[in-house]
Nucleic acid binder design. Structure first.
Lengths: 236, 236
DNA sequence: CGCCAGGTTGATTTCGCTCAAGCAATGTGG
DNA sequence: CCACATTGCTTGAGCGAAATCAACCTGGCG
């Protein structure tokens, strides 16, 4: 039994489901299944058939791609509360091309593919929302592709930190930017395709340059201006 | 005046427009504008507002992303006859994030954004087609991101060659695979974010290893098996 | 206490970039 | 028809960035 209906969901108003009417919401609520995962649990594996999509109610999920040689990459963006995971393969009619893992204890609602298909069938607005979402995601992914091809590790790290700013950052009265990293060092490295050792060294150099200091998951960026400079000028 | 109506277009049956009915096709045909570009001409620039989409009737178009430092990348896939360009930003409601350039003399039909929006509004199937298309593209882009992050230049070149196989390849009676490269060396390099010099050297090494020989736009792959090996084993 | 995973550091190697020159094919003007 | 630029590609030398391999911390946690 589902504890709460979807229209009571804290993420309801901003989410794509906002375009559904009362009946459709009921269908959604009736077919969804709420689940809880512990940090480290896997929602689905690379290659699995796509059974449906997962609304993240609370927590955080990351999608990993890996190959036979143990190489592993963590796709941006991390999917946080209010986000949806596993919905690209559903739209494409493909199997999952990455594994989804709870990066912390996470509560999700699973919506079966057939339900989503039904809703899309009956409500073109929903399709339209998904279309826009995918189009934006594709643009971001192209950007990431460009960056990994063209920018240095240092610069890419700056970009990621800046990406964390809105959600995990806080600006001090003296202009220092504090960021609480939502991921481990390993995962941070995996987010832009770099070995943990290289990340470590890069961090060290950034500290030596007096731009920021790192301690555990805490980052203090003293010199935000120089970080911004680094985004464009430093090495490309 | 448009010379040929869309239902006469040689690409009509397989294209997404196949879901349109007679009226809608007429609307499409009425609003489109046929244009011709010479190799090197630019269809639109990075940052431009997205005015609509371009159906490639004949020729080839590539989308470049570049930055202030002169770094440049050519997005895969190349858009060939029957393909559509500029349609991601249209769906996302964004400006163009790359520049589209005719890689050879190319004939296109331009469809204004408002027309596309109308058609999508009235025919959910079309939206659905675009959704699927975007979802697949996103999957491919994620794959590319993974590859550039994790694979060597050599391996990525193998992947690209293999990608060319279906469209530009031909299998000899003695098992040799011939590929007619559709792009210059520079662009080939830009397709996976590598300097032309690095590409050159990599090509040379592949030749020395007896796997393939390159001459102008012609590639002969004698040892297809070893190329396949290289996809997985060589360095990852 | 010892173990172990996550993270850092060091030494070394490899890869791809930079800068520079060379070369072949093509074009251009006298 | 020949000197001369131009363009696209290749080659070489040197360098720097990141990977690799290995050791070593550090903080839980049994």
């Amino acid at each position: 039994m589902t504890k709460n209906d979807c229209h009571n969901c804290e993420h309801f108003p901003p989410s794509d489901w906002g375009v559904l009417d009362a009946n459709e919401l009921q269908e959604l609520g009736h077919n969804k299944v709420c689940q809880t995962y512990q940090a480290g649990d896997v929602l689905f594996h690379q290659g699995d058939e796509c059974q449906g999509l997962y609304c993240i109610v609370d927590g955080m999920v990351g999608v990993r791609k890996s190959d036979a040689n143990g190489n592993c990459v963590l796709l941006r963006p991390l999917v946080v509360s209010g986000g949806i995971v596993g919905f690209r393969p559903l739209c494409a009619g493909e199997n999952h091309r990455g594994s989804a893992e709870a990066l912390r204890d996470t509560k999700v609602c699973f919506v079966p593919a057939s339900t989503v298909q039904n809703l899309m069938q009956n409500n073109p607005q929903l399709t339209r929302c998904f279309l826009t979402r995918l189009a934006k995601a594709l643009g971001d992914e192209e950007e990431d592709f460009f960056e990994t091809a063209v920018l240095s590790v240092r610069t890419r790290l700056f970009h990621i930190l800046l990406g964390f700013k809105d959600r995990y950052g806080r600006l001090d009265e003296d202009g220092t930017l504090h960021i609480d990293l939502p991921v481990s060092r390993q995962d941070l490295a995996a987010m832009f395709g770099v070995r943990p050792e290289s990340l470590s060294r890069t961090v060290r150099r950034i500290e030596q340059d007096g731009i920021a200091s790192f301690s555990g998951h805490n980052v203090q960026i003293h010199d935000v201006d120089r970080l911004f400079e680094g985004l464009y000028s430093h090495n490309e």
